Simulated scan of single mutants.
Amino acid sequence: MKLGVLSDIHGNRVALAAVLDDMPAVDGLVCAGDVVGYNPWHADCVDAMRGESAGLPEGVPWPTEAVPTVMGNHDRAVAGETPFAFNGMAQAGVEHATEQLSEEQLAWLADLPDERRVCDDRVKLVHGHPDDPDHYTYPDEFGPDLLDDEDVLVMGHTHHQHHEVYDDGIVMNPGSVGQPRDNDFRAAYSVLDLDEMTVEDRRVKYDTDAVIEAVEDAGLPRNIGFRLVKGQ
């Protein structure tokens, strides 16, 4: 069984469309949180993860059913629950998402769990860390001690793509679809093969100029768009 693994889409419909176009054949998708924030297409990205593709641009293989997703810190802030210490760009994105999303979309965000297990509990999804959803677990903290009884632990939050294979299983972060911060501007995602217990980390180019223009048109801080060019 193969899974397409996403995280930190952050309202970037252009990057998400590029990832879905690039993705090889998989048996399903999962998302490690932060569907919204920063970039201006929060509603479209929420609908994509909800499997509600009717209003999305044609010609993209949007999900046709709901994608198992956990709650990220931006999702939580937009849903109106536990606050998080945000910088100016992040706060602007949260406010923009709150204004843009419908009550139904906000309710979907509010219902997201901090942890989710899929594939007969073989895969555990969290956003930051198994013990703290807001902790930034960078690659130098990866280790088999992060695993519980699952075969694969998927984390997001850092926007750094990385995975490690241990005797006890796999610890992985697919990187960020919508705002990479590992000095590579290309949208990041991974393909997890549960039969072979392997991970293929993938990157795909997308039209960052279109995102920069949309950020400015939405009245969001300009650096939200410009930082995408450097992957920072």
Rank of each mutant, 00 (worst) to 15 (best):
P139H: 09
P139R: 09
P139Q: 12
P139Y: 11
D140P: 07
D140M: 11
D140G: 09
D140T: 09
E141S: 14
E141Q: 15
F142V: 04
F142M: 10
F142R: 05
G143C: 10
G143K: 14
D145F: 12
L146H: 09
L146I: 03
L146Q: 08
L147M: 06
D148K: 13
D148A: 15
D149Q: 13
E150S: 08
E150C: 07
D151C: 08
D151W: 06
V152N: 00
V152C: 01
V154H: 04
V154F: 07
V154I: 13
V154Q: 10
V154L: 06
M155H: 13
M155D: 11
G156M: 07
H157C: 06
H157M: 07
T158D: 11
T158S: 11
T158M: 03
T158N: 12
H159F: 03
H159Q: 13
H160V: 15
H160N: 14
Q161P: 06
Q161R: 02
H162V: 08
H163R: 13
H163M: 10
V165E: 14
V165W: 12
V165L: 13
Y166S: 06
Y166I: 10
Y166M: 02
D167A: 15
D167R: 15
D168S: 14
D168Q: 15
D168M: 12
D168K: 15
D168W: 12
G169E: 00
G169L: 01
I170F: 02
I170A: 02
V171E: 03
M172L: 04
M172C: 03
N173Y: 02
P174C: 04
P174M: 05
G175I: 07
V177H: 02
V177I: 09
V177K: 00
G178E: 10
Q179E: 13
Q179I: 11
Q179D: 12
Q179L: 14
Q179N: 14
Q179H: 13
Q179F: 14
Q179V: 14
P180A: 11
P180R: 07
R181L: 11
R181I: 11
D182Q: 04
D182C: 05
N183K: 15
N183Q: 15
D184E: 13
D184I: 11
F185N: 08
R186K: 15
R186V: 10
A187G: 08
A187F: 11
A188Y: 14
A188G: 08
A188H: 12
A188W: 06
Y189A: 01
Y189T: 07
Y189F: 08
S190F: 01
S190M: 04
S190K: 03
V191C: 05
V191D: 08
L192K: 02
L192A: 06
D193F: 01
D193H: 01
D195R: 04
D195G: 01
E196D: 10
E196H: 05
E196I: 01
M197L: 11
M197A: 07
M197D: 08
M197Y: 06
M197E: 02
T198C: 02
T198D: 07
V199L: 02
V199Q: 01
V199W: 00
V199I: 09
E200D: 13
D201R: 10
D201A: 15
R202M: 08
R203D: 05
R203T: 04
R203K: 10
V204P: 00
V204T: 05
V204M: 04
V204W: 03
V204C: 00
V204L: 06
